[in-house]
Amino acid sequence: MLLGGAAALLTPALPAAAALEQPTIASCGAWGARPPQGSLTIDEHRPNKIIVHHTALANSTDYSQAHAFANSRDIQNLHMDTNHWVDSGQHFTNSRGGWLTEGRNGSLYALLHGQTMVQGAHCVGQNDQAIGIENEGTYLTEQPPAALWNSLVDFCAFVCHQYAIPPAEIYGHKDFNTTQCPGLLHDRLPELRSAVAARL
């Protein structure tokens, strides 16, 4: 029997389909992404880790979905117009209100199938190995809102489930490159790994 929609996409990667609920993730089309300015590379393998980032942008108090979509557009414009990348560098973005959006075009399709990944531009040396998640805001001196944290836990658990990534393989940007990113979120990685393991 053929099934339509997300259920069909999830079947190969979710043998225990009821074990973990898919979070709501807005596609590039939903938030008004620009098309890539060049070809994107599809790696014919699963990623082996997750890398957590913060955007280093202002800590907005607008937690709406509309703001999350505007934030995704701002990031894409920065990455394409200033960094001169073909598209957003990260695979997914998590807003301070806990809204999840697809970052690099094709990342959501790949995640739902659980077999391939779109090569990113978020962490030197890891772009063909790691799913990059940008978390809206700057966390050098303050903690993220509960909505962002809870969404990050749920989403990391889903990514780990889809790609068979062990929770121990969740890292921060500064584990691989010289950067302050993701700020205090890096100190909470043990907590994040434990929370994800509990969901799985």
Rank of each mutant, 00 (worst) to 15 (best):
D87L: 06
D87N: 06
D87A: 06
G89A: 14
Q90G: 07
Q90L: 07
H91G: 12
H91T: 02
F92T: 00
F92R: 00
T93I: 15
T93S: 14
T93R: 09
T93M: 15
N94W: 01
N94E: 02
S95Y: 02
S95C: 05
R96W: 02
G97H: 02
G97R: 02
G97D: 03
G98T: 05
G98D: 01
G98H: 04
W99Y: 12
L100Q: 02
L100P: 00
T101G: 03
E102F: 01
E102Y: 01
E102Q: 05
G103Y: 09
R104W: 05
R104N: 00
R104Y: 04
R104S: 06
N105H: 10
N105R: 11
G106K: 03
G106C: 05
S107A: 13
S107F: 03
S107I: 00
L108C: 04
L108K: 05
L108V: 01
L108W: 01
Y109N: 11
Y109R: 08
Y109I: 12
A110S: 13
A110M: 05
L111W: 04
L111M: 15
L111G: 03
L111H: 05
L111I: 05
L112F: 01
H113Y: 07
H113D: 11
G114K: 06
Q115Y: 08
Q115P: 00
Q115D: 11
T116I: 01
T116P: 00
M117E: 08
M117I: 12
V118T: 10
V118K: 07
Q119C: 14
Q119G: 10
G120W: 09
G120I: 08
G120K: 09
G120A: 15
A121H: 15
A121N: 15
A121T: 04
H122V: 04
H122Y: 07
H122T: 06
C123I: 11
C123D: 11
V124K: 13
V124G: 09
G125E: 12
G125I: 13
G125V: 13
Q126H: 12
Q126P: 04
Q126A: 13
Q126V: 08
Q126D: 10
N127H: 12
N127R: 07
N127Q: 10
N127F: 06
D128N: 14
D128R: 07
D128E: 13
D128L: 06
D128T: 13
Q129N: 11
Q129G: 03
Q129T: 09
Q129D: 15
Q129V: 07
